[in-house]
Simulated assay, not measured.
Amino acid sequence: MTFYSFARFVANTALKPVYKYEVHGLEHFPKEGGVLLCSNHINNFDPPVVGITAPRPVHFMAKEELFAVPVLKDIIKACNAFPVKRGMSDREALRKGLGVLKAGEVLGLFPEGTRSKTGELGQGLAGAGFFALRSTAHVVPCAIIGPYKAFKKLKVVYGKPIDMERLRGEKASPEAATELIMAEIRKLIEEHKGVSA
């Protein structure tokens, strides 16, 4: 068993009884090839919840500050995460992310760049659009529908891959691509919020 699989098992054992998450749309998730997985961000537990529920291992971009914390940095590195500087263009993180996608693996992003304090979907940053346009990866939207409350159902919804071919052909801006991604995440939230399984 890899450390990633072990960490996923431990996190699932700890979180599932508390948040009782239900997962929808796994049939949409590509079984192979590079995947850019883009989710809204409402809680600090979002990365492990996405890591647990996604059908393939996810490489997350994580804020650089986490890698300065002893012990934690070793754990998140072993869970495929890599650092990104917030608030500026981090060329090394961009190269690393593109490398993940070109290797046919899953890159996980929270396009808002930070956790939403209100739970409402915020504006996405251009980084998500950059990866979508500069790669041939499938772009999969994900919606986490809370709130995170003990023993209340949490919903994780994976949408159909977004068709990026038109924007890639038009050489659209990263901002335009991010807007499309955020619109698809918003649709998932609106379609599934308040809908019981």
Rank of each mutant, 00 (worst) to 15 (best):
Ala7Cys: 06
Phe130Trp: 10
Thr136Asn: 14
Glu191Pro: 00
Thr118Met: 00
Gly124Arg: 11
Ser89Cys: 02
Gly104Thr: 09
Ser173Cys: 06
Pro83Trp: 15
Glu32Gly: 05
Val156Phe: 11
Ser116Met: 04
Gly87Glu: 10
Arg186Glu: 07
Val35Pro: 00
Met1Thr: 10
Val140Asn: 14
Gly119Ala: 07
Gly25Ala: 04
Leu26Asp: 07
Met88His: 07
Val100Leu: 04
Leu188Asp: 05
Glu191Arg: 11
Asp163Lys: 09
Phe67Gln: 08
Lys153Thr: 12
Asn43Tyr: 09
His41Asp: 09
Ala183Trp: 15
Glu120Met: 10
His24Asp: 01
Phe67Gly: 01
His41Arg: 13
Arg166Thr: 11
Val35Asp: 05
Ile181Gln: 00
Val100Trp: 12
His24Ala: 05
Thr2Pro: 05
Pro17Leu: 13
Lys85Glu: 08
Pro57Val: 11
Pro48Gly: 00
Ser135Ile: 13
Val58Trp: 12
Glu22Asn: 09
Gly169Cys: 12
Gly99Glu: 07
Gly146Gln: 02
Leu72Ser: 06
His24Glu: 00
Ala81Pro: 04
Ala103Arg: 11
Glu179Phe: 12
Lys155Asn: 00
His192Asp: 02
Ser196Ile: 11
Asn44Ile: 15
His24Lys: 07
Gly87Ile: 15
Glu165Arg: 15
Asn43Thr: 04
Met164Ala: 03
Cys79Thr: 12
Lys85Leu: 10
Pro30Leu: 10
Glu179His: 09
Phe60Met: 05
Phe151Val: 05
Gly34Val: 15
Asp90Ile: 08
Val157His: 10
Gly124Gln: 02
Glu175Cys: 07
Ala197Val: 10
Pro174Trp: 14
Pro174Ala: 06
Glu112Pro: 03
Gly33Ala: 04
Lys77Ala: 11
His59Met: 02
Phe45Arg: 01
Pro161Met: 08
Phe29Asp: 05
Glu175Ser: 06
Met1Asn: 14
Leu180Phe: 08
Lys73Glu: 05
Lys152His: 13
Thr136His: 13
Asn80Trp: 11
Leu15Ile: 15
Lys153Leu: 04
Glu65Ser: 03
Lys85Ser: 02
Ile52Asp: 01
Ala93Trp: 15
Ala11Val: 06
Phe9Val: 08
Ser5Met: 13
Pro48Ser: 03
Leu154Ile: 14
Gly87Gln: 14
Met61Asp: 04
Arg56Trp: 14
Pro111Asp: 07
Lys160Pro: 03
Ala172Asn: 05
Leu98Asn: 03
Arg8Gly: 04
Leu15Gly: 01
Ala128Tyr: 09
Gly97His: 08
Pro48Asp: 04
Tyr158Phe: 11
Leu66Asp: 00
Glu191Gln: 12
Glu105Gln: 03
Ser116Ala: 00
Leu133Asn: 05
Ala103Ile: 10
Asn43Glu: 03
